[in-house]
């Protein structure tokens, strides 16, 4: 079975007037089709930057990647047709109505007018947004807004779904519902999920395999049990202990909003 994502030496340096930031310093990883990968790391480790490269938003300064069967550099359009992306800060306009967002998204994915209508209704059903269709997005709760973000990312039934900190700021009920949804997407549609998180319990419960990044490099990878065994000495240890052993830091703090494209 071909890998859903494969990267080799993927790197990104930001050059600014007074300093350079090596946000990602060469990441090699492979994600299998249908896998849920947890991408963990402290603040500023380069998680969002990696995601933005893999979703064609940011050109890498070095390295190569294949995403959903398409080469990132040679065929970014092919990649875009096969992936969905939910950014850390989401992607809806607070002033725009839910229905309008779903419809625009459908049209941008090249659905005809009727097909876009139909898809919007389906997605609203799937993510329990039907009652909210006429509301402006600013009138949604955090959990509802996350569901809308995900609905929009699923418009074209992507093979690979990228989720950047999808449950940050959500109440426990909404988090649990979102985990269930992610599992369901994988079970029923075989979607590959690449998700970043700083909640260790989330990584532990949801991901098949973890990649821990620190300072722009892969610091450790394996199943949760493997990481606990190798870094904390026992599979009964907490992922927290393993994380501290790997990164030398405690659990990452709540992240600020993603830095915006400059």
């Amino acid at each position: 079975m071909p890998a859903a994502i494969h990267t080799a030496g993927l790197a990104r340096t930001f050059r600014m007037k007074h300093r350079t930031v090596e946000a990602v310093r060469g990441i090699d990883l492979t994600v299998q089709e249908g896998e849920i990968l947890g991408f963990l790391g402290p603040n500023g480790a380069g998680k969002t930057t990696t995601l933005r490269m893999l979703t064609t938003l940011l050109p890498p300064t070095a390295g190569t990647a294949t995403v959903a069967g398409h080469d990132l550099a040679r065929d970014p359009a092919g990649v875009r047709r096969r992936i969905g992306y939910v950014a850390q800060s989401g992607g809806v306009d607070p002033a725009v109505r839910v229905r309008e967002e779903l419809l625009t998204q459908g049209r941008l994915y090249r659905l005809g007018r009727d097909a876009a209508q139909e898809r919007a209704e389906q997605l609203a059903q799937l993510l329990e947004l039907t009652e909210l269709m006429e509301r402006p997005c600013r009138a949604l709760s955090g959990g509802q807004r996350r569901r809308l973000d995900i609905a929009m990312a699923l418009t074209h039934s992507p093979a690979v779904l990228f989720l950047d900190e999808p449950t940050t700021g959500l109440d426990p009920g909404s988090r649990a519902a979102l985990w269930e949804l992610v599992r369901q997407l994988r079970e029923e549609h075989g979607v590959t999920v690449f998700l970043t998180t700083h909640y260790l319990d989330e990584a532990d419960a949801l991901a098949d395999r973890l990649v821990v990044v620190d300072r722009g490099r892969v610091a450790a990878e394996g199943t949760s049990a493997q990481l606990k065994q190798h870094w904390a000495g026992s599979t009964a240890a907490s992922l927290q202990d393993a994380f501290i052993a790997i990164t030398g830091r405690t659990v990452p703090q709540e992240e600020p909003a993603a830095p915006l494209a400059v």
């Binding site: 933005r52 979703t55 064609t56 938003l57 359009a77 875009r80 047709r81 992936i83 969905g84 992306y85 950014a87 800060s89 989401g90 992607g91 809806v92 306009d93 607070p94 998204q105 941008l108 994915y109 090249r110 929009m152 993603a258 915006l260 494209a261």
Partner: peptide, 17 residues
Amino acid sequence: MLEKHHGVIERMRVTPA
């Protein structure tokens, strides 16, 4: 600028449009 802040631009830029 507002749309950029809310992530609307990036969301549109990952579509095939």
